[in-house]
């Protein structure tokens, strides 16, 4: 087994492990920029993943599954937004509630629908670049074999950057997250902006669920996200709400996760439990080193009531 082939495998695995995480983190970054701390992504991913899987299986159409996941995520985001923006309920509590309810509902519905067997999706996502030549060693072969969801994810990175940094709406989002009172004074409809941000956040969670269940695995099982939704919150913060930094942070997380497997393959004599701690310790260290001195959006976690400046 050549070093080059091993490195290619490591890189390919790194990319795959970071896809759903990147999408979910980008969504969380949009929400947090608008002042919404959503701890419910895990549950939103799960229920969207289930709904997308169910739709894809029933219709025998993968694309319809993706659509269903995104719509389901957006609806979940709307519920979250409605509760925390309109009803002004506590964000942390509602987020935890969404995680519990989304996980519970998806597991319940899965066992109701497919109690006696584990259906697998027939279709497979295309690999748009598979016919290209290898190009650069290691990087080339690791990339060309990927499914299109990988490239969609990478396309989302500049798109979200453009949305947040170059559009009026992005400006309003950040204003709603930093100084909602001032934004209101300047004529921004803070409620509408935050509600929209919550819906986008939800739709991204939905796509992340679909990326996992439909694109990567080809099936759904209860609890398949195994904490991705929570790690996404950390990655959004490590990346300081900047899409490019988030994408890199998610890749690094994927790298640490894959490195554990890789070291086992290359026969490094370390107990697997220690290898499995790496990515989580990595997040803590990354925050200590990278994110020091960064401020959270000033109004993160705060509800906004017209006329009251709480920041």
């Amino acid at each position: 087994m050549s070093i080059e082939a091993l490195l290619t495998a490591l890189l390919a695995s790194t990319i795959i492990s970071s896809v759903a995480l990147t999408i979910a983190s980008l969504g969380e970054a949009i929400g947090e920029s608008a002042g919404l701390l959503n701890l419910g992504i895990e549950g939103m991913m799960l229920i969207s993943g289930f709904v997308g899987f169910w739709a894809a299986l029933e219709s025998n159409n993968l694309w319809l599954g993706f659509l269903a996941s995104i719509v389901c995520g957006a609806v979940a985001g709307l519920i979250f937004g409605g509760l925390v923006v309109l009803a002004q309920a506590d964000q942390v509590i509602v987020g935890l509630a969404m995680t519990l309810a989304g996980g519970g509902l998806s597991g319940y519905l899965f066992r109701e629908a497919y109690g006696s067997n584990q259906p697998l999706l027939q279709g497979d996502l295309g690999r748009p670049l598979r016919h290209l030549g290898g190009g650069i060693p290691v990087i080339g072969p690791a990339i060309i074999g990927q499914k299109w969801i990988v490239f969609v994810t990478w396309a989302l990175v500049p798109l979200v950057w453009w949305l947040l940094r170059r559009t009026r709406f992005g400006l309003e989002i950040r204003a709603a997250g930093e100084r909602p009172f001032a934004a209101d004074v300047a004529g921004v409809d803070v409620t509408r902006v935050r509600l929209l941000a919550a819906v986008i956040n939800g739709a991204f969670s939905g796509l992340a669920g679909a990326a996992l269940a439909l694109a990567e695995l080809g099936f759904f099982r209860p609890g398949i996200t195994v904490g991705t939704g929570f790690i996404a919150i950390a990655i959004a913060m490590v990346g300081r709400w900047d899409p490019l930094r988030i994408a890199i942070a998610a890749l690094l997380f994927g790298l640490l996760r894959s490195a554990g497997t890789w070291m086992q393959i290359t026969g490094v004599n370390i107990r697997p439990e220690f290898l499995q701690m790496l990515p989580y310790l990595g997040v803590i260290v990354a925050i200590v080193i990278l994110a020091r001195g960064t401020r959270l959006p000033a109004a993160l976690g705060l509800s906004y009531r017209r006329g009251i400046d709480r920041t």
Partner: peptide
């Protein structure tokens, strides 16, 4: 090649797939 997916990863299909991808890529 001996590879452990996780601590109690009996249902962790995602990491099972990634791990298997890697061992296949390793030959």
């Amino acid at each position: 090649i001996y590879s452990v997916i996780g601590q109690a990863a009996y249902d962790d299909a995602a990491n099972a797939k990634r791990t298997t991808d890697s061992v296949l890529a390793a030959g």
